[in-house]
Design a binder for these strands. Structure first.
Length: 542
RNA sequence: GGCCCCAUCGUCUAGGCAGGCCUAGGACACCGGGUUUUCAACCCGGCAACAGGGGUUCGAAUCCCCUUGGGGCUACCA
């Protein structure tokens, strides 16, 4: 029985790297008919944020990744929040201490820092010196009384190599003495990641650990711990890292960085209203611009929205807000470091599950290519069942607070139909926004007006179009098409010379869905009203 | 600095473990053309890679070594 898990630390939104790790573990469990566990690694009090876990859960659900055991799902090995498992860790810590396999330490962070400093100045690697004699519980009590921090360090056997057997990389050998004693219990009483992960993977019966390559160097630590505690060693697969266009691993720091650069590149920015939009103080904004601190993600998002700038999507929720489908994300992420072995690329969840295989994971890092992602999105918008697409579109409209959010299913379905070929839901929303504004609130794009309405007698054509429309008794996309084509024929001009002025009159821009459908959906009354408004507004200035 | 991982078109990759089927395949991007009422989509065509150097072998993209390059880790973070 295969058991895999995804173990995020709730420090913020789920980002694509984490989503990919979750996905691979989920795909493998589903492929093998196994169990997939969600475990929350919240052992760092300083970094956890209260809403992060909920957000991670929301993001996973959006992606369609479900878990058999974990928060909200429950399960036989709970609790699934590490912060609630301290008694369990304490027992194993006590066992190691008793067996002389771990020992108390009383160093302050400052002392350790200066030792590290010394080591790096001498171009030496820092090595923690294990005491000749391990302090006992009494020493620990005394240290505590004196106000010194008390931690527990694991005494890593120094006379043997550690061999990591990795599904992707084969055997990776760490020579004797290369793994030094590391802390397993922090001075605040919480276990470190290394300890909690080993204990929980054992207790939860985890058989396969798929995780990022950045954990490869941690694995000997885990092997040593497993041996000391008499635990099994699961199968490991250290996946390649996803790197960003800028080089380096795709990091959540990219968004704040991009925002800072955009602000600096702008001519004049009203910093006060910017700070207000982000819900932060002026000092905080200043300090952010000076690269000293970074506000939290909602503040970054709010400021970007305020400025109308587009930041690179990093978190799963960013992709949602930019109009990507969960199907796209799952498909694209799966292909980052894995492939089905044939030429298939666009696949749905079921196809991915059916094809997934640990032997096809690649060793080399991959770059997150947004252009390809967008092309995948186009494909999935075409592929997804229309009812699913409608659901996705509705969720998207609600998320971004679009005026179209309240529209009826039938109307939204028609919109999706006439926008086939769009690359993102955002594109669809922008293209059809004119359907949801008042006739006198149409935002006319100046270049479009100049180029289309004020040249080639655009306004004159518009007047003719309006007359023909008025005499129409049956209004459908087809009858509208007939009228417009007929006019173009009679005037011996291309259809574009008729369609474009009309488009600008009703949408304000030269970009819209096919014009016949656009007019039909807007309705004849609104169309005529907008033509009248446009003719009045721009006829006079000319 | 130390330790570790990786290396095929600009990008994701197939092929590598079982060397000849590879004059290296697909997709995205890009370029050219077509379709066309705008954008997008769509159709046709094109450009484009085995990092370098040594071996092993009748034969290497494929196996070995070195160099170079990229990445990761080096916390009382996970």
């Amino acid at each position: 029985m295969v058991v895999t898990r995804f173990a995020p630390s709730p420090t913020g939104y789920l980002h694509v790297g984490g989503a990919r790790t979750a996905l691979f573990n989920w795909l493998y469990a589903r492929r093998m008919g196994g169990t997939f566990i969600l475990r929350i690694e919240d052992t760092d009090l300083k970094r956890n944020t209260p809403t992060a876990m909920q957000q991670v859960i929301k993001d996973l659900r959006w992606l369609g990744i479900d878990w058999d055991q974990g928060p909200e799902a429950g399960g036989p090995h709970g609790p699934y929040l590490q912060s609630q498992r301290r008694d369990i860790y304490d027992r194993y810590i006590a066992q190691l201490l008793e067996q002389g396999k771990a020992y108390y330490c009383f160093d302050t962070p400052e002392e350790l820092d200066s030792l590290r400093q010394e080591a790096s100045e001498g171009k030496q690697g820092f090595v923690y010196r294990r005491p000749e004699q391990f302090p006992d519980a009494k020493d620990a009590a005394r240290a505590r009384a004196e106000g010194r921090p008390v931690t527990v360090r694991f005494a890593v056997p120094q006379d043997q190599p550690f061999v990591v057997r990795d599904v992707i990389r084969g055997e990776v050998v760490f020579g004797p003495g290369e793994v030094q004693d590391f802390i397993i219990l922090k001075s605040d009483g919480f276990p470190t990641y290394h300890f909690a992960v080993v204990v929980d993977d054992e207790l939860m019966g985890v058989t396969h650990v798929l995780r990022g390559q950045e954990h490869l160097m941690n694995t000997p630590c885990h092997l040593a711990l497993q041996a000391a505690l008499g635990f099994r060693t699961p199968e490991y697969a250290h996946m390649s890292v996803t790197v960003s266009e800028g080089g380096g691993k795709l990091s959540k720091r990219e968004r704040p960085k991009a925002l800072r650069e955009k602000i600096k590149a702008m001519d004049k920015v009203d910093l006060e209203s910017l700070a207000r939009a982000g819900g932060i103080g002026m000092e905080e904004l200043e300090s952010f611009l000076q690269k000293k601190t970074t506000p939290d993600m909602p503040a970054i998002d709010a400021m970007a929205a305020h400025l109308g700038v587009h930041l690179p999507e990093i978190n799963v929720v960013d992709f949602f807000r930019s109009g990507y489908l969960p199907e796209t994300m799952v498909n694209f992420l799966a292909l980052l470091g894995w492939n089905p072995g044939d030429d298939r690329e666009v696949m749905d969840r079921q196809e991915l599950i059916a094809a997934f295989d640990l032997n096809r994971l690649s060793k080399s890092n991959s770059l997150f290519d947004r252009k390809k992602l967008m092309s995948f999105n186009t494909e999935h918008i075409k592929r997804v069942a229309s009812t699913d697409l409608l659901g996705h579109y509705r969720a998207f409209l609600a998320e971004i607070g679009s005026p179209a959010a309240g529209a009826q299913d039938k109307r939204l379905a028609r919109i999706l139909e006439i926008c086939l070929g769009a690359r993102t839901l955002e594109e669809i929303e922008q293209k059809t926004r004119f359907l949801f504004v008042d006739n006198d609130k149409v935002d006319y794009d100046k270049t479009a007006v100049d180029k289309v309405l004020l040249q080639h007698d655009g306004l004159g054509v518009l007047t003719e179009v309006a007359d023909l429309f008025r005499s129409l008794d049956e209004i459908t996309a087809a009858s509208i098409e007939e009228v417009l084509r007929g006019l173009a024929d009679r005037k011996q001009i291309g259809l574009g010379k008729v369609a474009q002025p009309l488009r600008v009159a009703i949408c304000g821009t030269t970009i819209s869905p096919p014009i016949f459908d656009s007019v039909d959906m807007l309705g004849m009354d609104n169309t005529l009203a907008r033509i009248r408004i446009a003719v009045e507004k721009f006829g006079r200035t000319n």
